[in-house]
Structure formats: structure tokens, C-alpha cells
């Protein structure tokens, strides 16, 4: 097919718009001056060093990892059986149950944080950490239901029946036949849920307390009171991790796994 020049120019413009701001951040991270300048006047990596000296970054980074990991694992433990039951059983009102499982997506994150803080933390005196975990569970669960659900839709359940007929019990058949065939869906769900939980801010806004604060919230806080290349350096580090992760995903699941 003959290529359309106008469309190509348009697409180049759009991709430039998407990428240039991140390139600018990357360059400013290597500036020497204490104000962010572009283009930079002299080269330095001191802001990268500074990132690791900020204690609140270190602590909140670990908190975020912990929360994202726990929320994702719980969502997988709860979500995979639910997705399986929704795909496999003839339950009445399957559509309704599925939309209940996906309903956290239509409640704004800030509202989830707000009601959890009021109800769990203030009324029921649940520790803030648990409240934060509950909030992030709401972020992760829909990804598990959607992505694992769609890979179960493509699964040929007659192979499970074949396993039964060969003398494999139902629970064993699930672990031996079903699970191995939806691992790519589970991995994709894991990545998406984890990343979105780690990056989430609105849910965490209310759910913070002494010693409990997520990394992006901390970063946002830092930006509001400081304007130096430290944030650029943090951004570069995070982007490097993102690139690494995307390369791994691309080699294993294919990059389209993250487009769900």
C-alpha cells in the first residue's frame, strides 16, 4: 500500500510529543546547577547520589514495593479462582458478578481512599497500613479479573475434561492443566496490577500516616516544596527500571501483554 506522507508526519509529531518531555527530564537530571535548566550547562551525576541520601525516599520506596506486592498477590489469590468460576460455571447473573468485581474501576481513586480512611481507619481503628493495602487491592483486582478472565476465555476447556477422563481430580486438573495454560495471562495481570499499584497516587492520598507513605506521594510532596534536579534523577532511575521491565515483558510475554 502506498504510504501516506501526511499521516506519517502527524504520527511523528504525536510520538515526539509523547517522548520529548521525558527526554528533557533525562537531560536535566545530569545538570550541575541546583536549578533545573535545559539545556544543561555542565555535566554531573551528583543528583543521582543525592536521591539515595534522602531517607523518606528510601523508606517510602520500600513501603510502595511492599504494598504493591501484597495487594497484587492477594488480588491474584482472590481473583484467579473468581475469574475461573466466572468463565467455567453456569452461575446465574455471571455478568452482574463480573461487573461487581470490576466496579472498583468506576469509583474514583481519591474517593476509595477517602471512604476507606473514614470507615476503616477512623471508625474501625484499623491500622493505616491495612487501609492502604485495601485501597491498593481495589486498584489491582480489576486487572486480574480482566486479564486472567480474557486468557481463560481463550482456553479450551475440553483439555480440562480430557484430564478428568484420564483420572485427574478436579482440583489437580486445575493446577496441572488449567493453570499452566494461563500463566502468560497471570504474568501479564501481575505486571499490570503491580505497576499500577506502585504508581497509584489518588488512593494513597488519604491513607497515609506516621511511617506509612507511598513513594509517588512522597515524590509529589517533594516537588511541591523543592525544585531541583533530584526529581529528574529519580525519574531517570524509575524510567530505567521501566525500560528494563518492558524489555523483559517483551522477551517473555510480548509487549502487547501490557496493552490490556
Amino acid at each position: 500500500m502506498r504510504k501516506n506522507k501526511m499521516l506519517t508526519v502527524f504520527a511523528v509529531f504525536v510520538f515526539g510529543f509523547l517522548i520529548l518531555p521525558l527526554i528533557i527530564i533525562t537531560i536535566t537530571a545530569f545538570g550541575k546547577g541546583s536549578a533545573i535548566t535545559f539545556p544543561i550547562e555542565s555535566f554531573s551525576v551528583k543528583w543521582f547520589v543525592k536521591v539515595f541520601t534522602i531517607k523518606s525516599f528510601r523508606i517510602s520506596f520500600l513501603t510502595s514495593l511492599e504494598i504493591a506486592m501484597l495487594a497484587t498477590v492477594i488480588a491474584l489469590l482472590v481473583g484467579i479462582p473468581a475469574a475461573y468460576a466466572l468463565a467455567r460455571s453456569g452461575l446465574k447473573g455471571k455478568g452482574l458478578i463480573k461487573s461487581v468485581f470490576l466496579s472498583p474501576t468506576i469509583v474514583p481513586g481519591i474517593v476509595i481512599g477517602f471512604v476507606l480512611y473514614q470507615f476503616l481507619v477512623l471508625s474501625l481503628r484499623v491500622p493505616v497500613f491495612i487501609g492502604l493495602l485495601a485501597g491498593h487491592f481495589m486498584v489491582t483486582l480489576p486487572y486480574v479479573i480482566r486479564v486472567v478472565g480474557s486468557s481463560l476465555e481463550q482456553f479450551d476447556f475440553s483439555t480440562e475434561e480430557a484430564a478428568w477422563s484420564l483420572g485427574c481430580g478436579k482440583i489437580r486438573a486445575f493446577f496441572k492443566v488449567v493453570l499452566p495454560n494461563i500463566t502468560s495471562g497471570i504474568s501479564a495481570a501481575f505486571m499490570l496490577a503491580f505497576i499500577n499499584s506502585f504508581n497509584n497516587i489518588p488512593v494513597s492520598m488519604f491513607l497515609s500516616g506516621p511511617g506509612v507513605s507511598t513513594f509517588p506521594a512522597n515524590l509529589m510532596n517533594y516537588i511541591e516544596y523543592n525544585y531541583d534536579p533530584t526529581v529528574s534523577a529519580v525519574s531517570v532511575l524509575l524510567m530505567a527500571v521501566t525500560v528494563l521491565m518492558m524489555v523483559i515483558v517483551d522477551k517473555t510475554l510480548g509487549i502487547a501483554a501490557l496493552a490490556k
Binding site: 504520527a11 510520538f15 509523547l18 517522548i19 518531555p21 521525558l22 528533557i24 527530564i25 536535566t28 536549578a35 533545573i36 535548566t37 535545559f38 505497576i195 504508581n199 497516587i201 509517588p216 515524590l219 509529589m220 516537588i223 525544585y227 526529581v231 529528574s232 529519580v234 525519574s235 524509575l238 524510567m239 521501566t242 525500560v243 521491565m245 518492558m246 517483551d250 509487549i255 502487547a256 501490557l258 496493552a259
Partner: peptide, 30 residues
């Protein structure tokens, strides 16, 4: 398609604080 899809997905995987910060650098008075 793989390359351009990756270029589109990359910002999605990047924290919104960073993506907003990028525009502070571009739009700020300095």
C-alpha cells in the same frame, strides 16, 4: 508496530508524578 506500541506503552508505565513534572519543566516561568 512493536516499536511504536512500546513507545506508547512506556509513558503509561511511567509514574504520573514524573509525567506531570516533565511539564513543569516545560511550562514553568523558567
Amino acid at each position: 508496530r512493536g516499536i511504536l506500541l512500546s513507545v506508547s506503552i512506556f509513558p503509561m508505565m511511567t509514574n504520573s508524578v514524573i509525567r506531570s513534572f516533565a511539564w513543569i519543566n516545560i511550562l514553568g516561568s523558567n
